[in-house]
Design a protein around this nucleic acid. Structure first.
Length: 543
RNA sequence: GUCCCCAUAGUUCAACGGAUAGAACAGCGGAUUCCUAAUCCGCAGAUGAAGGUUCGAUUCCUUCUGGGGAUACCA
């Protein structure tokens, strides 16, 4: 990276000047005429050296004399160091890019687990869930490409209370088909999708369970409903190209005794007690939180209990780290989970929670609340059908996970051209076309030329922008804000479109410059393609 | 009440504590004998309020206001 190269030059220079303990300074791409790159180092040194920043900057600029690479080093304003680079630097970077087409990919050596999209399998995936599914998938892609061996896992709650409510709700719908009126239970699922499932079931078993109900019939309905819902989920994820390495079912933890083992150990450690007929875990012993129920007074295990067993299971699978991606409603879950891990001597650093805010939907100009239970929601499938996979994925990836997003459904479904994904894709397609055009004129792009004529603002901007790619990816590893990637691609595309409209790229009268510009186009295209592929969005040759 | 996120242009979003707060859409005005006008160029338009820290604050701290979430024997 060019930035790192300047950073090293600066550090060496400071060393030469006898300055020790160099603070963590910045190299930035400044606005307008403040050079190609600039640094704030002088401000940070000013306190220590008890000099005004301007003088320090002047001093550094005198010592940093590398005429081969810097055309000019300027001290500006209160003490910024502004670097004007020689074309040679750009040329070398482009050459490197060309020699290593996917230079941003790092070998995967850190084994991590990502859990995301663990929605309750009690109905169709909603648009709200779509945000998390896309978010998780893209984040995994970025971790994977920057040196992590990522496993994607989805956890399905198929053992607890809601699956029973779901089963019973299905049974009611099934009976309704035979004109038997039963009511959907309190807290049950009222969405119409269960009617369709009931119809399918009716075809299969006819009137076998009409007016009949016992625990084994309940098990049958629970299982049938779960499988049906899960099939639907898989299809939805498939349509968005979201795949999981592991599908982890809550029930397996009950069946293989993991949950009982957790209970036994907690009891042995004297970390549980009974109260009001329920079994509680002493969360307050570890965190400033209320104690929590593990087993309800009606005998059902809580989500919390099975989730403890689940995370112990994760830990025993020897990942370097486990990441849980949850919606904002899970904030309360964090400290409880850490308390439980603590009880089993699992370090907090093993588990990282990544929370994202909700999606608010706007329909017919009104903001609506979604509820799977009430049967009042918009499905993700409808959205994908209406606008396509690329636009859906790009749209969700585009928002800062920490902010609530307002999603205007009508707008999204109709005016798909408003989605900036097309802007980025168009830049890619345009470049493909340039190469087609060059080939038609028999200008071959075989090897990268020595860059000598790329000195316009547009060309330098493009190279600098390409150079930012790795930096953007790495910063996402730290703050998990994947919207930086879409921002970046839009910016790169914008620089390209601007360059394109000002310069003729394929020019038969100037083969030399043409080849250099083709090299630049190749690098832009390569980066666009790389970024889009991390987003799971296609990079079309034609539009 | 307490805790967690958020508040930027008419709208939807940007901006590792840096110089003149960027885009997109909407609005207004331009550009195509030449590689795709799904584009480009120009105009107009914004940091919720009040303090504080700093050479410098949209960014950090405090208070307030407004929105969302949590505070379940829901998951």
């Amino acid at each position: 990276m060019i930035k790192n190269w300047i950073r090293e030059k600066l550090i060496k220079t400071l060393d030469k000047m006898g300055i020790e303990e160099i603070p963590d300074f910045k190299i930035e791409i400044p606005l307008n005429n403040f050079g190609d790159y600039s640094s704030n180092i002088a401000f940070l040194l000013s306190k220590k050296l008890k000099q005004n920043p301007r003088n320090i900057a002047l001093d550094i600029s005198k010592h940093l004399d590398d005429k081969d690479y810097f055309n000019k080093i300027e001290v500006a304003g209160p003490g910024f160091l502004n670097f004007f680079l020689n074309e040679k630097v750009y040329s070398e970077f482009l050459f490197f890019e060309y020699e290593n087409p996917q230079y941003w990919k790092k070998a995967s050596n850190i084994r991590v687990l990502f859990e995301f999209a663990s929605v309750n399998p009690t109905g169709p995936i909603t648009i709200g869930h779509g945000r998390q599914a896309v978010y998780g998938d893209v984040l995994c892609n970025i971790f994977q490409t920057r040196g992590h061996s990522v496993e994607r896992e989805i956890y399905l709650n198929n053992a607890g209370r809601q699956i029973r409510l779901l089963g019973r709700s299905l049974w009611v719908r099934y009976n309704n088909l035979f004109k038997n009126n039963y009511d959907i239970p309190e807290g049950g699922y009222k969405g119409e999708y269960l009617i369709q499932t009931a119809e399918k079931l009716k075809d299969e078993i006819k009137d076998k369970f009409v007016d009949k109900w016992d625990s084994s019939i309940a098990d049958f309905f629970n299982q049938y409903a779960f499988e049906a819902m899960f099939e639907g989920m898989k299809e939805t994820f498939d349509n968005l190209s979201i795949k999981f390495n592991n599908i982890f079912k809550e029930k397996s933890l009950v069946d293989d005794g993991s949950v009982d083992k957790v209970l036994k150990e907690l009891k042995e450690k004297n970390l549980t007690y009974e109260s009001e007929g329920a079994l509680w875990f002493k969360v307050s012993k570890f965190k400033d939180e209320k104690d929590k129920v593990l087993i309800r007074s009606d005998g059902y295990y809580t989500y919390y209990l099975t989730d403890i067993a689940y995370h112990i299971n994760k830990y025993n699978r020897n990942y370097e780290k486990a990441y849980d991606i949850f919606g904002a409603d899970h904030v309360g879950h964090l400290d409880r989970m850490y308390a439980a891990l603590d009880a089993f001597d699992i370090p907090e650093s093993f588990l990282i929670f990544i929370l994202h805010q909700y999606v608010n939907l706007k329909k017919n100009g009104e903001i609506i609340k979604m509820s799977t239970r009430a049967g009042n929601f918009e499905t993700l499938d409808d959205l994908v059908t209406a606008v396509g996979k690329d636009a859906t994925r790009y749209f969700f990836a585009r928002f800062d996970p920490d902010t609530q997003m307002l999603f205007d459904i009508d707008l999204a479904k109709q005016k798909t051209n408003e989605n900036p994904v097309f802007y980025v894709q168009y830049a890619h397609a345009r470049i493909s076309n340039i190469f087609k055009n060059a080939a038609e004129k028999n200008i071959l792009f075989d090897e990268i030329p020595v860059i000598k004529n790329l000195s316009s603002e547009e060309e330098k901007n493009l190279i600098k922008e390409i150079d930012r790619f790795e930096e953007i990816l790495d910063s996402i590893l730290i703050d998990y804000k994947i919207n930086k990637l879409t921002n970046y691609l839009e910016s790169l595309a914008s620089f390209f479109h601007s360059f394109y409209s000002k310069h003729i790229i394929v020019d038969e009268n100037d083969i030399k410059t043409t080849k250099e510009r083709l090299a630049l186009c190749k690098a832009v295209q390569n980066t666009l393609k790389g970024g889009l592929s991390l987003l799971g969005v296609s990079a079309p040759e034609n539009m």
